[in-house]
Write a protein that binds this DNA or RNA. Sequence first.
DNA 1: TATGAATGAGTGTTCATTCAT
DNA 2: TATGAATGAACACTCATTCAT
Lengths: 217, 217, 217, 217
Amino acid sequence: MQPATAPRRARPAKAAVAGEPASKRALRTQGRKTMRKLLDAAMVVFARRGYHAARVDDIVKVARTSHGTFYLYFSNKEDLLRALVAEAGEVVGALDSALGTVTPDAEGWAELRQWMGQFSEAWQRYAPVLRAWTDLVMSDTELSAQAHAAAGGVARSLAMRIAESGPPAGIDPNAAAEAVVAMIDRFHQLRQFSGEPIDEDALDTLTTMVHRALFAG
Amino acid sequence: MQPATAPRRARPAKAAVAGEPASKRALRTQGRKTMRKLLDAAMVVFARRGYHAARVDDIVKVARTSHGTFYLYFSNKEDLLRALVAEAGEVVGALDSALGTVTPDAEGWAELRQWMGQFSEAWQRYAPVLRAWTDLVMSDTELSAQAHAAAGGVARSLAMRIAESGPPAGIDPNAAAEAVVAMIDRFHQLRQFSGEPIDEDALDTLTTMVHRALFAG
Amino acid sequence: MQPATAPRRARPAKAAVAGEPASKRALRTQGRKTMRKLLDAAMVVFARRGYHAARVDDIVKVARTSHGTFYLYFSNKEDLLRALVAEAGEVVGALDSALGTVTPDAEGWAELRQWMGQFSEAWQRYAPVLRAWTDLVMSDTELSAQAHAAAGGVARSLAMRIAESGPPAGIDPNAAAEAVVAMIDRFHQLRQFSGEPIDEDALDTLTTMVHRALFAG
Amino acid sequence: MQPATAPRRARPAKAAVAGEPASKRALRTQGRKTMRKLLDAAMVVFARRGYHAARVDDIVKVARTSHGTFYLYFSNKEDLLRALVAEAGEVVGALDSALGTVTPDAEGWAELRQWMGQFSEAWQRYAPVLRAWTDLVMSDTELSAQAHAAAGGVARSLAMRIAESGPPAGIDPNAAAEAVVAMIDRFHQLRQFSGEPIDEDALDTLTTMVHRALFAG
DNA sequence: TATGAATGAGTGTTCATTCAT
DNA sequence: TATGAATGAACACTCATTCAT
């Protein structure tokens, strides 16, 4: 081992408000661009290595900027992640209202299918952020509560649709909704891992499964 | 006279075979017990913090032993995880053959249900290990390939059962099997996270969903 | 909220090319100066304690810089030593061509004497490096081959001078050259150890011995 | 990496008298044999890696005994080395009186030659000990003084022989004697390192060099 | 606004030494 | 007399964060 090992500042600055640029000076065009580069770079690196294994150095290299610059825009690594989470929250939040009533027929299937597509797209864009968030939350006991609020939102609106459609006997709408979100999430993750594509066919299969399991009379 | 100045190995070695005590000395009763304590402690700590955030120090504290002792049994943190993975692999591997033919009727449901129960139990026992494994794999590009072999095994045998039961139109057995495993896995994770129990009702719901989705004629 | 839990590289790396700054970033003036300070400090510490007993901490203290800075310029202690060895190699290599033909008369003695002076000077400058190198080589079986190449160079050119001068009966030029280098090297070491100076008189004695032994008709 | 690294007890026991078995109980046959095994093993290991890089573990393995047993006979690693040094001292000390008057003729050469042979033999037996001793002394400033006492003895008696033979002009007998010892010592070391044998021819060459340099009228 | 250099707390790992059996 | 297990002080090395330019 690898040799030896790694640090963790005691709790150094940590002064800045999360999700806000380190100093709240209004950003000019140049500034915005640099900040964007850092956010995008962070997503790439988080995707590759997860939150803990991601080095500020990696992020900075991918963004083709310097260490000093990083701290011009974010007060620390966690701050950057929070900014990303906020961004993801907006997109994922939109899914709350993206699913209409799901009927037992082909029309219901189609409704479910378009929602599945949106979900997939959002997931593929922001999965690294969620993953990183989970990493952070896990190693930080104080954080657990706030976590998964977004995911919870999606599950809640899905649960409503299940409940209103008169679910099959023995199905708890809340558990079922959770299970569906779980399935989609982890399925994407596995596929991404194995390198297999998440294509139309795969989404069709998922849709059919959910439709049959919960909405097919 | 100065303290006996002790030097250093030229190279940290890092050679140990995974899943084996650091040096393959045969373990006596005492030794086995200590090793077990360390493995169990590691599961606890991995569960709490994930692989990267887990400190050898934490593990050692939970196991009520010393830093040096750790390295008597494992050549490093990764080695310990590999031992755990091997152990988990055996248990999870048993699931391969645990699912019989699933018929569309109540009997089929029952078959599926007992498998779900076994899966749940195995998961609850070894989830931290899988999670840690994922952490490690993600930060180490060389590892990706070997990963998820176990999970793959379970999915494969499930895919066979789906295929033999004559799956509904538009269902790809392989993708479906993957999706089911994904659902169960992540559902458990979410529940564990939120602190809600994974009770009989929840497993019933999952079983019903899978049965309806894939095996209900 | 917990401190930002920072993780660890999967593997200690240990990849760096010897004699090069840890990452080959081009060095500015400031950087060069710091690197020089570290190299000089290392020579001092290696001289005092030898390679193995030398602590990075000692080097860093003498250089009046920090631990982290050390690893900014060298990937590890061995890397630093290799840089030093490369440097020494250049100086010592110059000795190869520093000895002209040695005649049996006073002129020959003078030629030998000036060479002895150069040798002594080079030795006094880089002895700690050679000593450290020996320490390292001894504890690392993989290295043995490359070692002493420089010393070999000096001995070879000396052997040529001996051979061309028609050496006394029973003298093997190669063994003799080796013996001379050995003598000068170790003599310096002993003197340094005992604290006695290596003055003109001592070098005169050495020169006379060598001249009488090998070049005096 | 090698990774990381190495310890050094602050100054733990260090109670025992150096060069004496840890507890002075009279040793039975069995005990003597075990102690001998350890001393021999230590020589092997010191030869291979030097004092600092030698691990008690290595010694114990070569001696085919256990850690605990080591400390039954020696109070620490340094203690073992001291025992070895004492042993070497006796053998090397015998060289003091091994050199008779050296005349300028063939008889003088022969006298020198037999002494050279004895020296070579002693060296080949105990060189690792001297080397280890040097390692220890270097990293321990308080020790410097006592060092090389044995070597000094040999040099002194040689210096006497040089002085009594009426040395050439410009030769300081003490420096010359030191130089001769230095040459023989280091020559052996270099040869051992390179793997070339130290054969009769080599010793003849050394003898001729010394005889011509210092005793040839 | 940007950067390269510096810092040092924190962590993995080693190995001399002690101890219970 | 012998042993395997346990211990923990030391040390190499990493990387988040700060700072001078």
